[in-house]
Amino acid sequence: MTRSLAAWLAGIAGAAALVLLPLALNRYGIYILSLWAVMTIAAIGLNLTLGYAGQISLAQGAFVGIGAYAVAILTTSGFPFVVGLAAALAVSFAVGWLLGYPALRVQHHYLAFVTLAFSTLAYLVFRNEEWLTKGIYGIVGVPRPSVLGIATAKPLPFYYLCLGALAVVSFAVWWLVRSPWGRAFVALRENPVRALSLGVDTRRYTLMAFAIGSALGGVAGAFYAPLVEFVDPTPFTLALSLNLLMMVIVGGAGFFLGPFLGALIAVLLPEWLRFMEGWYLIAYAVFVMVLLVISPTGILGILDRHLTARRTRAASQARAAAKPVLNSEAA
């Protein structure tokens, strides 16, 4: 009970900080924080596919692109933002579902290659299909929406919009991973053969894991477009997919809070390490390598091991206290 109370208090403190912090930040700081919220949404999606269901994907960046283009194309053609958001969600869900089919046949690095190929394909579509995407010139002037009559054109209200989206996504995914679906995803990751023999329709759950994870990539893209107000192909190369993968792994794949932390590091570190100029990427790479040697399960993996060890110690102490007779015999 005290543990869940502590978790609640930490959650409330975190949420309060996210609401109050931007009041003390300048325009650029608010932009960075908005970017964090958007990237966290995409990383949460990838964490679902990779961390929970165990299906590697190197295409999450492509789905951010799909979502961004959906919103950019539709809102610059006069449709309201919600229509763009719905389209981003629907298209990336459907494409993610299709991308799940190879995962039914191949796993691990083969699956990585398939999704990598898809990522490249999506980039080529963004760049070459000029009739739709305006190619390398990009789509200029993506408008920021009005929500309930409040314009979000200014940085602060737009940040709160992104934060609201993050809150909704977080709640939905929190619910999902605690539901029987979440358990089935983990079973899929840990032992698909056994899961299948227990009646778990692994095909359907695999496709769902891809579709939902990808859809969240699309949602992130839907907010990314009005955040930067200009959409061209360059942000959506393989580098973005790899960056999102890093966020998930550094934070801790399969931990609910992993993407929040991973995205925080990936978005803020370049800012903090600005003084290092070109060396910053090397510093980041060294950090990631050292971290993964110490803890392959990311930062939250370290915390988890620490807590588990403490619980086990407490439990065995309790057992020892309950059975003094047995103990003295053993001694």
Partner: peptide, 14 residues
């Protein structure tokens, strides 16, 4: 063939 990361109870619920 058990699910090592799930608790005993979660294995059975699954």
């Amino acid at each position: 063939q058990v699910f090592p990361q799930l608790s005993v109870r979660e294995n059975l619920i699954l």
